[in-house]
Simulated assay, not measured.
Amino acid sequence: MTPSDASGGASTGASAGRWSSLDRPPLNAVALQRALVVPGGLWTSVEVVDSTGSTNSDLAARAAELPEGAVLVAEQQTAGRGRLDRSWVAPARSGMFFSVLLKPGPDVPQERWGWLTLLAGVATATGLSRAAGVDTALKWPNDLLVTVDGDERKTGGILAERVGDGVVVGIGINATLTEDELPVPTAGSLMLAKATVTDRDPLLRSVLRSLEQWYERWRAAGGDPAASGLQETYAAGCATLGRHVRAELPGGRILTGTAEAVDTDGRLVVRTADEAHEAVGAGDVIHLRSIH
């Protein structure tokens, strides 16, 4: 998997033929549905498929006919996508690859919907810290970082796409990838970060429950990142802030400087060498070093 930045039959765990690795059992769709789809809750359905190209593409294609809170999980993605059209491919059942459909409605101005990527990052990091016992940091805007042998590694990513009256948020997380399975040295996994839990079932439940809590809090505040506590929490967990960074911007422009803040629009504020401040809304940000 390259965490730069998830149909077949439902996976219930009943098919012995799918147990190609005892360390990577299939998800139990029935148990997940029972645990997550509850009266008054956000999640309205949980579907698990054996394999698909991209859960984001699949859910986006069906968004108009589905209610808010639909969840689509794939045991394997063959054409997973991240930001900047990067691919996301991993061995079957080695991680969590899923997408959710959110429809903030008229109570949240559309100009604030861009915060959903950052919200999903906060929720995922919180859920993984609780269930996996591993510290997870955020790299602006959508990467999840863990520490492996003292090195900062990407273990997951998020991709949000607007569809009609809603947003499809895709999340991919490396759970049990080994060093031999990593596509690049900068990739990581929860197992390599010595997580206490790598069972995908409790991890997926924890992330989705955390996502529900943060989403409802944000929506109740009209999408206001400050009033909901989202902006402050994101900044506290963002490993990009305080770092010297290089931002590769659309059009080929390069910006270097110190990442100082995340503004109310979710943009990264970079202080350049001439003490100017520029807000970056899109681009690829590379951590160069910490500022001491």
Rank of each mutant, 00 (worst) to 15 (best):
S99E: 13
V168M: 14
R86N: 14
W218F: 15
A282K: 05
P39Y: 01
R18T: 10
V122D: 01
L66H: 07
R62K: 14
T124W: 02
A74L: 05
T12V: 09
V167D: 08
R81Y: 03
R24E: 15
L138N: 14
M191Y: 01
A235L: 03
E248A: 13
G53Q: 08
H292A: 12
L182F: 12
G9Q: 13
N174W: 08
A35P: 05
T196D: 07
D165E: 08
H244Q: 10
A220I: 02
P202F: 01
E212W: 03
G105T: 07
S20W: 11
V245Y: 07
W19K: 00
Y234T: 06
V122F: 08
L66C: 10
A131N: 10
V38I: 04
A239C: 14
L36E: 12
R162A: 11
V280F: 01
D274Y: 01
T124E: 08
L144T: 10
L128T: 01
G164E: 13
G257A: 07
I173V: 15
F97I: 00
L42V: 15
T55R: 00
L27R: 08
G229N: 11
A227L: 07
V146K: 07
T78D: 11
S206K: 00
V167E: 01
I158K: 14
Q110F: 07
G266E: 06
T117N: 08
T147K: 02
G229Q: 11
R219T: 10
R83P: 12
D50K: 01
P183M: 04
P91V: 00
V270K: 05
G242W: 03
